[in-house]
Amino acid sequence: MIHIDLTDQPIAVADALRSVEADGAGAINTFIGTVRNRSTGRAVVRLEYEAYDSMALHQLRKVAEQAVAQWPMLQKVTVIHRKGTLHIGDVAVVVAVSTPHRAESFAACQYIIDTLKQVVTIWKKEFYEDGDVWVAAHP
């Protein structure tokens, strides 16, 4: 019912969506995070995601479990995050949830991606033509 993964391979989005199909679900909601070509006004060339794997997997599972506790009607939850080198347009993260009705699917999906960004031990380094920056590292 909860599927979590952290991978250095391209994320198979269609497989992720299929993984939350359920007979009791009238709604499947997804968030797909992709690599944007600009950040704070600078042209991004590529990204590198670094993870503290064991803690990231543990925290991802906790976030999914918190969502299930808050929306007990959740049928299935899949969260897959990419690590390693990514280029413009690549899929960095997929969150997919299924619920009987649509309202809870939107809310649960947003909760999971918002909380993931706050607690999951993954770090993004942006590379530009003329340098690189660890995102959010400094005030």
Binding site: M55, H58, K117, V120, T121, I122, V135
Partner: peptide, 25 residues
């Protein structure tokens, strides 16, 4: 693999890590 509170005591066998601002997603 859990965020520690300020007063959490550390032990030699603990798996300890420094966690700078995360930026996944």
């Amino acid at each position: 693999n859990e965020y520690a509170a300020d007063d959490t005591p550390l032990h030699e066998r603990d798996e300890i890590a420094l966690i700078p601002p995360v930026s996944g997603g």
